[in-house]
Nucleic acid binder design. Structure first.
Length: 1066
RNA sequence: GGGGCACUAGCUCAGGUGGUUAGAGCGCACCCCUGAUAAGGGUGAGGUCGCUAGUUCGAGUCUAGCGUGCCCCA
C-alpha cells in the first residue's frame, strides 16, 4: 500500500519535513560514504563574503552548483562539497567603519589598528546565519562544518607560500600604479567607490605653449584640464595618424591638429606646414616648469599615443605619468622618465618653490597666472565635466596619483595562462575567446598590494639599512629567523586569551615581527601593505588545505576541480585569479587547471531588467519566496529561466508558474496513481508483465522515458541545465496529457486483467524513473514521491532518492518508430479537435467518421494501430483512410532542401518552381506508382526519389477538415437520428456526473437514479440506459417520478429532464 | 573610450552543425472535460526574428556596418 495522497499539496510544508529528514538521517553525509571506491567529482565553492545579506543572485549560483553536484552524486561519483568564506578586504573594513562611525585611514589609525582588526574578525560572519539558512532552505548541500576561511592562519600561510614562491621566481616586484587617490583621507579608492562619487563641475581648460627646441619661434599648443600636473610634465602625446599643422598666428608658429585649427585659432591664420603626428614623435620641447629633473628616462619629448582625441583640446595632450593612468602607461611603454611633484596629502612639496604647500586643485589659478605672466598661456576656458569626489566626503576631489605598489608579473607568463584558458570548457563557449580571452589579451601586471589594514599581509621584509629584501612562506620560516618573533603576540594573548591565533598573521601584530641576520647591519621589517583579496580566493585550491605546509594528500586528490560555477562578474575576479595563480604556481601541471568546466551565469535582474538592489527593494527576500511557493519552485524557475551567460529577469511569477507547469503536473499524476493503486491494492511486488506483453501506449511511454533519460544525461554532462529542463517538461506533458489521460479507463477497470497490471507497472516504473531523473533539480518533491512509491514498499531501497542511482539508458525500451507514430497520432487528434472547434461540434456529440489522409502508407498503418484512442478522443464511430485522397486534399510537392540542396546546387530554385507549377496530385500519383518522378529543368530533366521531395497536403475547403504537419483530418459532420440520440445520452451522463459532483460523492460511490423525460430524450435514455448506468455507477437506473436525495431538473435540446439521485445502499 | 553580451508573439524566453509552415509558457479570445476535479485540457488570434548591406541555391542562424539596451573595464 501507498500512503494516500491528497491532490492538494503544500510544497513549503513538505520542504520542512524533508529538511528535517535529511538532517536527522544524515543523508548528505551518506552520499559521501564509500568515497574511496568511487570516482571523484571535484567541485570548488567560490567563497562568498558573509558580511552582506544573500540575495536572489546568490540563490541562483547555489542551485546551479547543486543540480550538477546532485547529478554526479546519483551518477556514482564521490562529490565532496566543502564550503568556504571570503573574509578579507575593503568591504569588511567599510562595514566596520560604518559600525564604528569612523572613516578613513587616519581615523582607523587613531582608533587603533589592533582593535580595528578585532572588529573585522567579528564582522566577517555577520550574516553567516542568513547565508547558512538560505543555503539550507534552497536545498544546497554544503559542508559548513569544515569550511575554509581565508583569514585563518593556515590559509594565510598558504597564500604566503605562493607569494614567496613568486618572489623567489622574480614574479613579485615593486613599481608604480596610478590609483584614484583621496588626498585628505590618504587612501586609494576602489573603482566601485569612485563610481559612487561623480559630480558635474567646472574645471579650467588651458592651452599652453610648449616651445619647440631647435625650431625658432615655434611652440606646440597642448591642452590640459589639470594645470597642477604641469610641473610634473614628461611628454606630449600626439596621434600618429593625424595631420598636424604649423600655423602662423600674429608672428609666431603654433602646432595643433589640422582638423582643429579653425576651432582653436580662428579663420584668420596661415598654415605654414603640415606633418603627420608620427613625424612629430621624438621632437623635443621646453617644459613649462623645471623644478626637478625627471628620473628613470628621457623627458620633454613628443610621443605617440592611442587615446588622443580630436573632440576637444588641440590634438596634443600634456602627459604627467604620475597623475594619469593613460599617461603612465604611455610613458612607461616609451621608456620615459617619471616625476611626481605632489605630496600624498595633495600639497606641493618644497621643491616646487612657487606653490609649495598649496593644495593641488586650489593652486590651479596661480599656476595659470604664472604661465600667463611668462607668455606661455595661449587660451583659458572653462570645461564642464563629471569628476569623481570622495563618496564619504563629497567636497573632497579625488586625483589620479601614482603610488608605489607591489605587482605580480603576470605578463611574463600570460601565454601559458592563455593556453590554460583555451583548454577550459567554458559554458557559454564565448567566454573563452570573448570576455576572458579579451581580458587576457590586454593583460597588465597584477597590482597586488593594498594600503589597507584587514587583509593577508604581504610577506615581504626589508632591511631598514641595506634595503635587502626577503620573503617568507610560513610562520615557521619566520621563527627560524627569529624564534622570538611573535613574543609580543604571545604576551598579548597571555593577557587576553580570547585573542585568536589567526590574528598573529594579521596587522598590526605581524608588523612587529622583525629579525636581524648575522653579519648584516640593520633590521628586517615588514612592508606595510596587505594584498588584494582576490589573490586570497584564487589560492583556494591549495590554501583550503593549508598546502604545502599540510594537506598534501587532500590537495593532490582534489586538484584540479572538475566543475565550478559563479556569475559573470567573476571573470576578472575569481576565475582569473584561480587560473593565473595556478598557472604561475604549477607550471608542470597539464592544462586545464585548476578547473576543467566552468559555467558562467548571467546576473539576475528584476522584471524590468534592472539590477537587484537592496536599496530599491526590487526583489522578494528568497526566504520569504520559498516559504510561499516552496524551494523546488524557486529552483525550477531558475533552471528553466536561466541560460548561462544571459541575464535573467527573475520575478516571483516565474516561481508560481513553475508550480503549476511542472511540480503540480507531476503531483497530479502521482496522486492519480496512488489513488488507483490503493483501490486495487497494487504494489510494486505485483506481477509485472514483460515489456513485450504491454500495450503500445505502455511501450511508448517507456520509450519516451528512455529518450528523455538519454537527453537529460547528455545535457547535464554538457552543463546545459536549461536544455535538460526542456526535455523533462516535454516528458511530463506526454505523461500527463497523453499517457494518463488516454489510460485512465485501464486503471478504473474492475477486473484484474493483465492489461491493468501492465498499466500500473508502466506508470509506476515511469514515475520512479522520472523522480530520479528530476531529483537533482527539485530535491524536495521528488523525495516525497520516492519515500511513498519506493521506500515504503521496499525496505532494501535506498533511504533517500538522493542515494539512489541516476537512471541509465535502457536499450530494451528504445522504440523510435513508436515514438514517431504517437507524435503523428497526437497530431491527428489535434487536427480533429480543430475541425470540431471550427465547426462548433462539441466533443460530446458523436460523429460517424473521421477520415485521415497521409501521404505515406506505412504511416497510415501505424496510425491505424491507435484507432481506438483517436476515435475516443474525437468521439467518432470509425476512423477511415480514404482511397481517393484527391477528393479531400490538394497535393503539393516541395523539394527536400536538405537532400536536394547539396545535390542540385543552383538548380534548386528551378526545381522548386517546376514542382510548384506541376499538378501536385498527378506527381503524387506518379510517385506512388513508380517510386520516382521526372521533372523538367532548364538544364535538362532530372529524376527525384521519394526522399528527395516532401509531400504537403492541404485540406480542400469544401470539407470540415484541417491540415498540418503532413496530415489532413476530415470529419463527417452529418448527424443522423442515431448519432443525435447517442449525443443526448452523453448529455444525460454529463448531467448526472455534475449532480454527483454537486453532492460531493466519492467517485467510487454507487447511486440509484430515477428519471423522467419525454420524446426523443426519453428514447435516447432507453436506448443507452445500460451505458448511462455504467458510466455513472448507478446500480438502479429506471424511469419514473424523479425522487431521491437530490432532484435535478435540466434541459436537453428543449426537452425537460428530471433526475432523482440517491446514494445506493452499500 | 575599449571589450563582451543581447535584440525572436502584448510579456518572459527557447531555437547544438545555415534547409524554406520560427516554437513554449503567461496573458487574451472561444471552447471542452467533470472518476487527476478548489484540478486538467483543446483550438485560435498574435511575429517583415532590431535595421541595412553581403556570402549562399537557401540566412532567425554566417560576415560587415549601424541603432538600442545591459554587463565589465577605463
Amino acid at each position: 500500500m501507498f500512503e494516500p495522497v491528497s491532490p492538494q499539496v503544500s510544497f513549503p510544508e513538505l520542504d520542512a519535513i524533508h529538511l528535517a529528514f535529511w538532517e536527522d538521517t544524515r543523508i548528505f553525509e551518506k552520499t559521501l560514504e564509500g568515497g574511496a571506491d568511487k570516482p571523484p567529482f571535484i567541485f570548488y565553492e567560490g567563497p562568498p563574503t558573509a558580511n552582506g545579506m544573500p540575495h536572489p543572485g546568490h540563490v541562483m549560483t547555489r542551485v546551479m552548483k547543486d543540480v550538477f553536484l546532485r547529478y554526479r552524486t546519483m551518477g556514482g561519483y564521490y562529490v565532496p562539497r566543502r564550503a568556504g568564506w571570503d573574509t578579507h578586504g575593503l568591504p569588511v573594513e567599510v562595514e566596520v567603519e560604518k559600525a564604528l562611525g569612523i572613516s578613513g585611514r587616519d581615523a582607523i589609525q587613531a582608533y587603533g589598528v589592533e582593535a580595528f582588526s578585532r572588529q573585522c574578525i567579528d564582522s566577517v560572519f555577520k550574516y553567516i546565519d542568513e547565508w547558512q539558512e538560505m543555503t539550507r532552505r534552497i536545498g544546497f548541500w554544503l559542508d559548513f562544518d569544515d569550511a575554509y576561511v581565508t583569514f585563518h592562519k593556515s590559509y594565510v600561510e598558504s597564500v604566503w607560500w605562493a607569494l614567496s614562491e613568486m618572489f623567489e621566481k622574480g614574479l613579485l616586484y615593486q613599481g608604480y600604479k596610478v590609483v584614484w587617490w583621496w588626498p585628505q583621507g590618504g587612501t586609494a579608492l576602489s573603482a566601485g567607490e569612485v563610481g559612487q562619487g561623480y559630480k558635474t563641475i567646472d574645471d579650467p581648460s588651458v592651452m599652453i605653449r610648449f616651445p619647440v627646441v631647435d625650431e625658432d619661434n615655434t611652440s606646440f599648443l597642448a591642452w590640459t584640464t589639470t594645470p597642477w600636473t604641469l610641473p610634473s610634465n614628461i611628454a606630449l602625446a600626439v596621434d600618429p595618424e593625424t595631420s598636424y599643422a604649423t600655423v602662423e598666428v600674429e608672428g609666431e608658429h603654433l602646432i595643433v591638429a589640422e582638423a582643429l585649427v579653425e576651432k582653436v585659432l580662428g579663420e584668420e591664420v596661415t598654415v605654414v606646414a603640415k606633418r603627420k603626428g608620427s613625424e612629430l614623435v621624438g621632437m623635443r620641447y621646453e617644459p613649462p616648469f623645471r623644478y626637478a629633473e625627471p628620473e628613470g628616462g628621457p623627458a620633454w619629448e613628443v610621443v605617440e599615443a592611442d587615446f588622443v582625441s580630436l573632440d576637444s583640446g588641440t590634438g596634443l595632450v600634456h602627459l604627467a605619468p604620475a597623475f594619469g593612468e593613460d599617461d603612465f602607461r604611455v610613458c612607461k611603454d616609451k621608456g620615459m622618465g617619471f616625476l611626481q611633484l605632489m605630496n600624498p596629502d595633495g600639497t606641493f612639496p618644497a621643491t616646487v618653490t612657487d606653490f609649495a604647500g598649496r593644495f593641488c586643485k586650489e593652486a590651479d589659478r596661480d599656476i595659470i597666472r604664472n604661465l600667463r605672466s611668462r607668455g606661455l598661456l595661449f587660451k583659458e576656458e572653462v570645461y564642464r565635466h563629471d569628476y569623481p569626489f570622495c563618496w564619504r566626503a563629497m567636497d573632497d576631489p579625488l586625483i589620479q596619483y601614482a603610488r608605489r605598489s607591489w605587482f605580480i608579473r603576470t605578463t611574463q607568463e600570460i601565454e601559458r595562462v592563455k593556453e590554460n584558458n583555451r583548454a577550459i570548457h567554458w559554458e557559454p563557449e564565448h567566454i573563452k575567446t570573448g570576455r576572458m580571452g579579451q581580458f587576457l589579451e590586454g593583460n597588465v601586471d597584477w597590482a597586488l598590494s593594498r594600503e589597507r589594514f584587514w587583509g593577508t599581509p604581504l610577506p615581504i621584509w626589508v632591511n631598514d639599512e641595506t634595503g635587502a629584501v626577503e620573503s617568507v612562506g610560513s610562520v615557521a620560516e619566520i621563527l627560524e629567523r627569529n624564534p622570538k618573533a611573535f613574543g609580543h603576540f604571545e604576551k598579548a594573548k597571555a593577557k587576553d586569551p580570547s585573542l585568536q591565533d589567526h590574528l598573529m598573521v594579521h596587522k598590526p601584530w605581524v608588523d612587529e615581527v622583525t629579525w636581524v641576520k648575522n653579519g648584516e647591519p640593520g633590521v628586517y621589517r615588514r612592508v606595510p601593505e596587505v594584498i588584494d583579496c582576490w589573490f586570497d580566493s584564487g589560492c583556494m585550491p591549495f590554501a583550503q588545505w593549508g598546502y604545502p605546509h599540510r594537506g598534501q594528500d587532500e590537495f593532490q586528490r582534489s586538484f584540479p576541480a572538475d566543475f565550478i560555477t559563479e556569475a559573470v562578474d567573476q571573470t576578472r575576479g575569481w576565475f582569473y585569479s584561480l587560473m593565473t595563480i595556478s598557472t604561475l604556481m604549477f607550471p608542470a601541471q597539464e592544462v586545464p587547471h585548476p578547473f576543467k568546466n566552468c559555467v558562467v551565469m548571467g546576473i539576475i535582474t528584476d522584471e524590468k531588467g534592472k539590477k537587484l538592489s537592496k536599496r530599491d527593494k526590487n526583489y522578494t527576500d528568497p526566504l520569504v519566496l520559498m516559504d510561499r511557493v516552496g524551494a523546488d519552485a524557486v529552483r525550477w524557475a531558475l533552471y528553466a529561466g536561466t541560460v548561462p551567460g544571459q541575464n535573467t529577469r527573475f520575478f516571483d511569477a516565474a516561481a508560481t508558474d513553475a508550480v503549476r507547469e511542472f511540480l503540480l503536473k507531476i503531483w497530479n499524476v502521482y496522486s492519480f496513481f496512488v489513488t488507483y493503486a490503493n483501490i486495487d491494492a497494487w504494489t510494486p511486488t505485483a506481477d509485472r508483465p514483460p515489456l513485450s506483453e504491454r500495450s503500445d501506449m505502455d511501450r511508448w511511454l517507456l520509450a519516451k522515458l528512455d529518450a528523455t533519460v538519454r537527453a537529460v544525461r547528455r545535457e547535464l554532462d554538457d552543463y546545459k541545465s536549461h536544455m535538460a529542463v526542456r526535455h523533462l517538461l516535454t516528458f511530463v506533458d506526454g505523461l500527463s496529457n497523453w499517457y494518463v489521460r488516454r489510460s485512465r479507463a485501464r486503471f478504473w477497470a474492475a477486473d484484474d486483467s493483465a492489461d491493468k497490471r501492465a498499466a500500473f507497472s508502466t506508470l509506476y516504473e515511469a514515475l520512479v524513473d522520472l523522480i530520479k531523473l528530476t531529483a537533482p533539480f527539485t530535491p524536495f518533491m521528488t523525495e516525497t514521491l520516492f519515500q511513498n512509491l519506493v521506500r515504503n514498499n521496499d525496505p532494501s531501497a535506498p533511504e533517500s532518492v538522493h542515494l539512489a542511482s541516476f537512471p541509465e539508458p535502457d536499450d530494451a525500451r528504445v522504440d523510435d518508430a513508436l515514438r514517431h507514430t504517437v507524435e503523428q497520432v497526437r497530431n491527428v487528434v489535434n487536427l480533429g479537435q480543430r475541425v470540431r472547434n471550427e465547426n462548433k461540434l462539441k466533443v460530446r456529440q458523436p460523429l460517424a467518421e473521421a477520415i485521415v489522409v497521409v501521404a505515406d502508407d506505412g504511416e497510415r498503418a501505424a496510425i491505424d494501430g491507435f484507432s481506438d484512442a483517436i476515435r475516443e478522443e474525437l468521439n467518432v464511430r470509425s476512423l477511415g483512410f480514404t482511397q481517393e485522397p484527391e477528393k479531400y486534399v490538394e497535393f503539393e510537392l516541395v523539394p527536400n532542401f536538405r537532400v536536394l540542396g547539396p545535390k542540385l546546387g543552383k538548380q534548386v530554385p528551378a526545381c522548386k518552381k517546376a514542382l510548384a507549377e506541376s499538378d501536385g496530385s498527378e506527381l503524387y500519383a506518379e510517385m506512388e506508382a513508380n517510386q520516382k518522378i521526372r521533372v523538367e529543368l532548364p538544364d535538362g530533366p532530372i529524376e527525384l526519389t521519394p526522399d528527395e521531395v516532401e509531400v504537403r497536403l492541404t485540406a480542400r475547403e469544401d470539407f470540415a477538415a484541417a491540415s498540418g504537419a503532413g496530415q489532413v483530418v476530415v470529419l463527417d459532420t452529418r448527424i443522423d437520428d442515431d448519432l443525435r440520440r447517442e449525443g443526448m445520452a452523453r448529455e444525460v451522463i454529463n448531467r448526472i456526473q455534475r449532480a454527483r459532483k454537486a453532492m460531493d460523492l466519492p467517485y467510487e460511490a454507487r447511486i440509484e437514479v430515477s428519471w423522467k423525460a419525454d420524446g426523443e430524450v426519453a428514447q435516447a435514455i432507453e436506448e443507452h440506459a445500460e451505458r448511462i448506468a455504467g458510466e455513472t455507477l448507478a446500480t438502479r437506473f429506471e424511469s419514473g417520478d424523479a425522487k431521491g436525495a437530490t432532484v435535478e431538473e435540466t434541459e436537453i435540446e428543449g426537452t425537460t429532464l428530471r433526475l432523482g439521485i440517491t446514494t445506493a445502499p452499500a
